[in-house]
Structure formats: structure tokens, C-alpha cells
């Protein structure tokens, strides 16, 4: 969607989705600033942007950290519309959040109208293994069902966060391994085209 092609590095818009309190903001802040925020403060909609090197190319990643609470469900469509890739986060200690991923997935697909939208299923709070209530198998099963990668992270211990961050190698999409570049440029290119067509379609529909 970037309209400034010139010297500006390519911009990739990533949206964090998931139920309230699963750790979307914590993951984002850990990724952005290597810090873990203990305090819980419900997010409305936060915006972060940083430069990273992907596949030898310097790109900007724009992260939109959205609100998980149902109060804000109405405005989600707006956000999703501008997203180019999604991180769907749930907490492995909270089955409800895992169930909610289903709704998020559906909403995203509905808004984006694209089955192949870059999507990553993230099971957070892996440091709380003893309180685990969502079996790993169930997670993997769902990821496989959706044909998206699954990764378990801990925003607190920074487990696997780097992997998300340094995903460089571009293997075929929809692999279930974490190393698979979720932010793969190739992916994003495809997505971009799709995004445009989608928007155009929307416009023609809405008129």
C-alpha cells in the first residue's frame, strides 16, 4: 500500500490480532525494544515501525498492535483492511483465546478476501508451561488445517521472538516451521497485488 516508492524502503504492514490479554503488545514491545512490560494496560491501537534487513534488503516493518477486547471489535475491519500480514496470537494458558483465533481468522479472510494472506499462528506465554491448557497438538492441528505456520513464543523470556524477527530464508509458504519466513518479501509481493485487487473490488462493490 506504500505510495512512496522512491528512496523509502519497502514498507510491510503487519497486524497483531488476538483476544485481550494474550500478549500481543508484549510481543510487539519485545520485538521492537527488547523489553518486557509487566503491567497490563489494554491496548486500543498502537503503531510501531522499524527498519530491519530482510533477505539483504532493508525494509520497514509497520506493526499495528490492535485491541483484543470485544469493545473494539467493531473497528477491527478498518484495521484489517490495511494489513498485509497477520500475527494471530493466543495464550496457551487460555483456551478461550485459542478458540477466538477461529473468529479472527474468519474475519481476516472476510475482510481481505484472500485465502493466501500471510498469516502466522502464535501461541504465547510458553514460559508458563505448567499452566498450559491448550495442548500443543491442537495448536499444530489447527495451523495445519489453516495451512499457516505455528510458533510458540514467550514475550517474557524472549523465546522464539528473534526467530520471528529474523525470518529471512524464503521457503515455500505455509510451512509449519517457525523458521519459515513469515515476513518473506515474496509473500508480501503476492499479498500486495492481492491487496490492490481486493481494494478495487471493494470500491466497485460499495458504489
Amino acid at each position: 500500500m506504500s505510495k512512496k516508492p522512491a528512496a523509502q524502503p519497502t514498507l510491510h504492514k503487519v497486524i497483531m490480532v488476538g483476544s485481550g490479554g494474550v500478549g500481543k503488545s508484549a510481543l510487539t514491545l519485545q520485538f521492537m525494544y527488547d523489553e518486557f512490560v509487566e503491567d497490563y494496560e489494554p491496548t486500543k491501537a498502537d503503531s510501531y515501525r522499524k527498519k530491519v534487513v530482510l533477505d539483504g534488503e532493508e525494509v520497514q516493518i509497520d506493526i499495528l498492535d490492535t485491541a483484543g477486547q470485544e469493545d473494539y471489535a467493531a473497528i477491527r475491519d478498518n484495521y484489517f483492511r490495511s494489513g498485509e500480514g497477520f500475527l494471530c496470537v493466543f495464550s496457551i494458558t487460555e483456551p478461550e483465546s485459542f478458540d477466538a483465533t477461529q473468529e479472527f481468522r474468519e474475519q481476516i479472510l472476510r475482510v481481505k478476501n484472500d485465502e493466501n494472506i500471510p498469516f502466522l499462528l502464535v501461541g504465547n506465554k510458553s514460559d508458563l508451561g505448567d499452566k498450559r491448557r491448550v495442548p500443543l497438538d491442537a495448536c499444530r492441528e489447527r495451523a495445519a488445517h489453516w495451512q499457516v505456520p505455528y510458533v510458540e513464543t514467550s514475550a517474557k523470556t524472549r523465546d522464539n521472538v528473534d526467530k520471528v524477527r529474523h525470518a529471512t530464508a524464503p521457503p515455500p509458504p505455509y510451512h509449519s516451521t517457525i523458521q519459515n519466513a513469515y515476513f518473506s518479501p515474496k509473500h508480501l509481493k503476492i499479498f500486495k497485488k492481492n491487496g490492490h485487487s481486493h481494494v478495487n473490488a471493494y470500491r466497485s462493490n460499495s458504489i
Binding site: L29, M32, T43, K44, D46, S47, Y48, R49, K50, L64
Partner: peptide
């Protein structure tokens, strides 16, 4: 500045700025 929370709001919104 690389982060803003929240990214929009009416006047008087408490904003966390990161960077």
C-alpha cells in the same frame, strides 16, 4: 520515535511514545 500507543485519539489522549 518508532512507536505510539495508541496511534489515534481525541485531544487529551494519554499517549505512550516509544523509540
Amino acid at each position: 520515535v518508532t512507536g505510539i500507543s495508541p496511534k489515534e485519539g481525541p485531544p487529551g489522549t494519554r499517549v505512550t511514545i516509544r523509540g
